[in-house]
């Protein structure tokens, strides 16, 4: 994962590869550290994400709760059709930009 932009207008974080259980255990702490003391809405760039598993969804849901708690929104952009399908299947399609 990589922070693309983080200022008072937007916090943009790009994920890449497979958002599976191994990915989540390796990146979760770093990701949540980026969500501390937000000053802007969060956008997650999924253009390089090839796979999304349930632990990936779980991480996104936890992030969503944290971002909402701080009064901001969290959205996902550029998800490929297979990844979109997983969001839609779990009725999380409204997170997609």
């Amino acid at each position: 994962m990589k922070v693309i932009q983080s200022d008072t207008s937007i916090v943009k974080i790009a994920f890449s590869g497979r958002l599976d259980s191994n990915y989540v255990s390796n990146n979760e702490v770093k990701f949540f550290a980026c969500l501390n003391g937000l000053e802007a809405p969060v956008v997650l760039d999924f253009s390089e994400v090839s796979f999304l598993g349930s632990l990936g969804i779980r991480m996104i849901l936890m992030a969503l709760k944290e971002v909402k708690r701080q009064g901001f929104t969290l959205k996902i952009e550029n998800a490929d059709p297979n990844v979109k399908y997983v969001f839609e299947m779990t009725s999380l399609g409204d997170l997609l930009l």
Binding site: S54, I57, R58, L61, M62, L64, K65, K68, V86, M89, T90, S91, L92, D94, L95
Partner: peptide
């Protein structure tokens, strides 16, 4: 319960649900 709004959704328990859906 996936009818709950995203912020009220329970975290976890999605794995077997996805298997059943697919």
């Amino acid at each position: 319960d996936i009818s709950l709004s995203t912020e009220d959704r329970q975290i976890g328990g999605l794995g077997i649900f996805l298997i059943k859906k697919i």
